[in-house]
Deep mutational scan, measured.
Amino acid sequence: MTTFKLIINGKTLKGEITIEAVDAAEAEKIFKQYANDNGIDGEWTYDDATKTDTVTE
Rank of each mutant, 00 (worst) to 15 (best):
M1A: 04
M1H: 08
M1T: 12
M1N: 05
M1D: 02
T2I: 15
T2A: 06
T2P: 14
T2R: 13
T2K: 13
T2W: 14
T3W: 13
T3F: 12
T3G: 01
T3N: 03
T3K: 13
T3A: 07
F4V: 12
F4P: 11
F4W: 09
F4G: 12
F4K: 08
K5H: 09
K5W: 11
K5C: 15
K5P: 12
L6S: 01
L6C: 15
L6V: 06
L6E: 04
L6G: 01
I7K: 03
I7W: 04
I7A: 00
I7N: 01
I8S: 00
I8D: 00
N9H: 08
N9Y: 13
N9A: 07
G10R: 01
G10K: 02
G10I: 13
G10W: 13
G10Y: 09
G10T: 14
K11Q: 10
K11V: 13
K11P: 08
K11N: 11
K11F: 12
T12V: 11
T12S: 08
T12M: 08
L13Q: 05
L13S: 05
K14Q: 10
K14R: 10
K14P: 04
K14H: 08
K14G: 04
K14A: 05
G15T: 14
G15L: 15
G15W: 15
G15N: 08
I17A: 00
I17W: 12
I17S: 00
I17G: 00
I17T: 00
I17N: 00
T18G: 00
T18C: 15
T18F: 12
T18R: 07
T18Y: 11
T18V: 10
T18N: 03
T18H: 07
I19F: 05
I19Q: 00
I19G: 00
I19K: 00
I19C: 15
E20H: 11
E20Y: 14
E20Q: 13
E20C: 15
E20G: 03
E20D: 06
A21T: 03
A21F: 14
A21R: 02
V22L: 12
V22N: 07
V22W: 13
V22H: 11
D23N: 12
D23Y: 03
D23I: 04
A24Q: 11
A24T: 03
A24N: 05
A24I: 12
A24H: 15
A24V: 08
A25K: 09
A25G: 06
A25T: 09
A25N: 08
A25C: 15
E26L: 05
E26Y: 07
E26H: 08
E26C: 09
E26M: 10
A27I: 05
A27L: 07
A27R: 01
A27G: 00
E28R: 15
E28Y: 14
E28L: 15
E28H: 15
E28P: 00
E28G: 05
E28C: 15
E28K: 14
E28M: 15
K29R: 13
K29C: 13
K29H: 06
I30P: 00
I30R: 03
I30A: 03
I30Y: 13
I30K: 06
I30C: 12
I30F: 13
F31S: 00
F31K: 00
F31A: 01
F31L: 05
F31Q: 00
K32Q: 09
K32V: 03
K32M: 09
K32D: 01
K32W: 08
Q33P: 00
Q33L: 07
Q33E: 07
Q33R: 10
Y34V: 02
Y34F: 11
Y34C: 13
A35E: 02
A35Q: 03
A35M: 13
N36P: 01
N36Y: 14
N36R: 14
N36C: 14
N36H: 14
D37Y: 09
D37K: 07
D37E: 13
D37L: 09
D37T: 05
D37C: 15
D37N: 06
D37W: 07
D37I: 10
N38Y: 13
N38V: 12
N38I: 14
N38A: 10
N38G: 03
G39S: 06
G39V: 02
I40F: 07
I40T: 01
I40W: 07
I40H: 02
D41W: 14
D41M: 12
D41L: 11
D41H: 12
G42E: 06
G42V: 08
G42F: 11
G42A: 05
E43Y: 12
E43G: 05
E43L: 09
E43W: 13
E43R: 05
E43H: 09
W44V: 02
T45W: 11
T45K: 06
T45N: 07
T45S: 11
Y46F: 11
Y46W: 12
Y46A: 02
Y46E: 02
Y46V: 03
Y46G: 01
Y46I: 06
Y46N: 03
Y46S: 04
D47E: 09
D47H: 06
D47I: 11
D48P: 13
D48E: 13
D48R: 08
D48H: 11
D48Q: 09
D48M: 09
A49V: 12
A49T: 10
A49R: 09
A49D: 09
A49Q: 09
A49Y: 09
A49W: 10
T50F: 06
T50D: 03
T50A: 07
T50C: 14
K51R: 11
K51H: 11
K51V: 03
K51I: 04
T52W: 06
T52D: 04
T52P: 03
T52H: 04
T52A: 06
D53N: 15
D53H: 15
D53K: 15
D53G: 15
D53C: 15
D53Q: 15
D53F: 15
D53S: 15
T54Y: 11
T54V: 08
T54R: 06
T54I: 12
T54D: 03
T54A: 05
V55Q: 05
V55H: 03
V55F: 06
V55L: 11
V55T: 04
T56K: 04
T56V: 11
T56I: 07
T56Q: 06
T56G: 07
E57P: 07
E57H: 08
E57Q: 09
E57D: 06
